[in-house]
Amino acid sequence: MHDISAPGFLSVDTIYLEPAVEGFARGREILARFPAARRIPVASHWRIPELHGNEGLAEDWLHSKRTTLVLGVKKGLAMRPNGRSADFIAPSTSNGCAMACAYCYVPRRKGYANPISLFVNVEEVAAAIARHARKLGPKPEPDQVDPVDWVYDIGENGDLSVDAMLSDNVRDLVALFRATPHAKGSFATKAVNRDLLAYDPGGKTRVRFSLMPERVARVVDVRTSPMAARIAAIDDFVRAGYEVHVNFSPVILYPGWEADYRALFEAVDAALSPEAKRQLKAEIIMLTHNAALHEVNLRWHPKAEDWLWTPDIQETKLSEGGQENLRYRTGWKGRWLARFKALLAETLPYCTVRYAF
């Protein structure tokens, strides 16, 4: 793992940008932050042969994460119904990540290292969310997502805590939800960026800190904030006006996982204030892996596959997007999930499970 505030965590020296980027104020602001960076015009943030589909980058995975930035304009502004972690998936203001979790699904979609792409038309994204929320009006009844507000996931394809180091997109989205009735933003993160404590969310943005046992995270959560730092941040973010949940994702099964998770739950319990405990809820998401990602990981981080690739307890399943993924075996997965939830209820009885998969 890594301190994202350390010098050199991001050292952007190459920026790929779509032609329209410099026509947006946010695009000009971001470019001004990196005056010495080499600028390479591209027709589309999706089609950059040097990055996407370039097998040669597998061995140079972390370098491109640290040094490369892509700037583009978000085209599709539709809200996708979700009903699991959020009511809707909002149009992303980013894609890709400077961190390098070995199980991440995004490289499977866009190709290899997939560094951060930022979209500079954040005002259009925010306006689309606000229009959507106005049309919906008040939420008619409580549900597993939220008892009061319509919840929009604003970080599906990246990590907004790191995005906020590069632009004010995240600050703008937090401000949007603070001012929008009946709507709440939500994003999961594996990074602690304390700049977000000054954003004044007013209870209208939910941050979900992803947690797993330290000895696993040390191998698979590459370039992320240490687990102790994430746990310690929960109280600070609650005091700053965020709703803070925990995201046990992905749950990776291995001999001794129950003892390790018990220790993790006990660490959370010991660290949280009564105020943080009262509002705490959790998501549980069991590991999904993929044969293609397994092959890529073997080239840059084979040790991670000792944890992720366990075909004796996994089976192939077709995803909603039509990909062949590996998940824990049906039947057994349900039993393991039940054991996980029982352990959580025993050690953190105040932590409601909002969603488990």
Rank of each mutant, 00 (worst) to 15 (best):
M1T: 12
D3V: 03
A6H: 09
F9S: 13
F9T: 11
V12F: 15
Y16M: 12
L17N: 11
L17K: 13
E18I: 13
P19L: 06
V21G: 07
E22H: 02
F24K: 11
A25R: 15
A25M: 06
I30L: 07
L31K: 07
R38H: 12
P41A: 11
S44Y: 06
R47D: 15
I48E: 10
P49C: 09
L51T: 08
H52R: 13
N54R: 14
E55K: 14
E59G: 11
E59P: 01
T68I: 12
G76I: 02
L77P: 01
R84V: 01
S85F: 07
D87M: 04
F88S: 02
F88C: 05
T93M: 15
T93D: 02
S94L: 12
N95H: 12
C97R: 11
C97N: 09
C97A: 13
M99F: 10
C104W: 05
R109P: 00
R109Y: 15
Y112E: 14
A113L: 07
I116S: 14
I116D: 07
E123S: 12
E123M: 01
E124Q: 14
V125A: 08
A127C: 04
A130K: 15
A130S: 13
R131C: 00
H132W: 05
H132M: 00
R134D: 07
K135T: 10
P138Y: 10
K139G: 08
E141T: 11
P142T: 03
D146E: 12
V148L: 15
D149T: 02
V151H: 03
I154E: 00
M165E: 11
D168C: 02
N169C: 08
A175H: 09
A179C: 12
A179Y: 00
T180A: 00
H182C: 09
A183T: 02
A183W: 00
K184A: 12
F187E: 00
F187M: 04
A188G: 09
Y199K: 03
D200A: 15
P201V: 06
T205Y: 01
R208E: 07
P213G: 06
P213L: 07
V216L: 13
A217M: 03
A217C: 02
R223A: 14
R223M: 13
S225G: 00
P226R: 14
A228P: 00
D235V: 02
V238S: 05
G241Y: 01
G241M: 05
Y242S: 08
N247L: 10
D260P: 00
R262D: 05
A267V: 03
A267C: 04
V268W: 05
L272Y: 03
A282F: 06
I284A: 15
I284W: 08
T288H: 14
H289Q: 14
H289V: 05
N290F: 03
A291Q: 08
V296L: 11
V296R: 13
P302L: 04
K303L: 11
L308K: 09
W309N: 15
T310N: 11
P311D: 04
T316I: 04
G321V: 02
Q323S: 08
T330G: 07
W332N: 08
L337T: 15
A342L: 13
A345Y: 04
P349V: 07
Y350K: 12
